[in-house]
Design a binder for these strands. Structure first.
Lengths: 194, 194
DNA sequence: GTCTATACAAAGATAGAC
DNA sequence: GTCTATCTTTGTATAGAC
């Protein structure tokens, strides 16, 4: 195996917890997916329990989330056409949702098992939302977008993107064949209409 | 007990499967919640297995879903002001999502365990979406709403409502204190802007 | 660091008394 | 129709050889 077993177990945990939930994933499943013999207790050489791995997985994804928020510099872009800037921003958001979709899935499934970490998730989520509202407000101030309640608009946009993403995920394809680009186009048309 | 045990087991199943998932719910949990002695096999006098109850629960909720779609007559309302009609319609949709939220939760958790029933869920979902698109199209034809792709707009609206609902559910309160009424107001403002 | 073997606990399921 | 008791299966976890 190329990578460290501990790392492979983290990967296995991410995929299986997201797909089958904490209770729906057995230590044997994790071992099998990490290339270990299922049923051998080899898992326990790396983590003290299934719950310990769960927490490690969530922590790892949280760090990725934090990083991806920091990387989003589009908010400060100087693209002249607001519509283009927003299109890029929304596309980026959908991509990020795709990448962090497994954390999303874990949150929706086993939020209760996350303990303190849940508060941290919520904090990060709200920070992202506030940044988005500030950005929208700025665009409204400069007259590039019609004036509306920035906080409510940010929540609306975020809800739309998340709803579309989760839906696509649940039904394993875009709802009624409306591709991401069409959704983004409509969304931008809507918020730039007066 | 007032109601039939079978019925109480269905209720218990709906609540527990939605909250803890199929794998996260034990037969003992179900028995306890239905007022039976946990650990006694009394459950098996009513259902042949945990999976059998799961299927019965999903079927029952699907029927409720079907009924609730049929009941939505607002689409044919003659309220003069489109904005008011839409506000009522969206509010109704959010309420329905709340009532069917447990089915939603089950779908997001254990879609894989639903087998054939999943296709039925998807069919109903798409039917509701098509009805919404047709309604929007009608409003555009009569000039009461600005012209946009009805299918894409319907998906956008539905995504927003579902995203908002799921988010509120995950974080146990409205995102950044934006109440449902504010979301609906923004949404209507957006789609009626030209 | 992974395996075989095994102990132990939890959960699914059945039999039979009441 | 629910209970006690019990059996079986599955899953968690540890010990010790390689």
């Amino acid at each position: 195996m190329a990578r460290d077993t501990r790392e492979r177990l983290l990967d296995a945990g991410l995929a299986l917890f997201a797909g089958n939930g904490l209770a729906g994933t057995t230590v044997s499943d994790l071992e099998a997916r990490a290339g270990l013999r299922a049923g051998s207790g080899s898992f326990y050489r790396h983590f003290t329990s299934k719950e310990a791995l769960f927490e490690a997985v969530v922590r790892q994804e949280l760090d990725r989330f934090r990083t991806s928020i920091g990387d989003t510099t589009i908010g400060e872009s100087t693209v002249a056409d607001v519509k283009i800037a927003l299109a890029l921003e929304f596309h980026e958001a959908l991509t990020t949702l795709g990448q962090l979709g497994q954390l999303e899935a874990i949150i929706h499934r086993d939020a209760h098992a996350m303990g303190d970490l849940f508060d941290e998730v919520e904090g990060l989520y709200n920070a992202a939302l506030d940044a988005s509202a500030a950005r929208l407000n700025q665009l409204m101030e400069s007259g590039q977008l019609p004036r509306r309640d920035p906080q409510a608009l940010a929540v609306t946009i975020r809800s739309t993107l998340i709803g579309y993403h989760l839906n696509t995920q649940s039904f394993r394809r875009s709802a009624r064949r409306v591709p991401p680009a069409d959704l983004i186009a409509i969304l931008i048309d809507l918020i730039s209409s007066k």
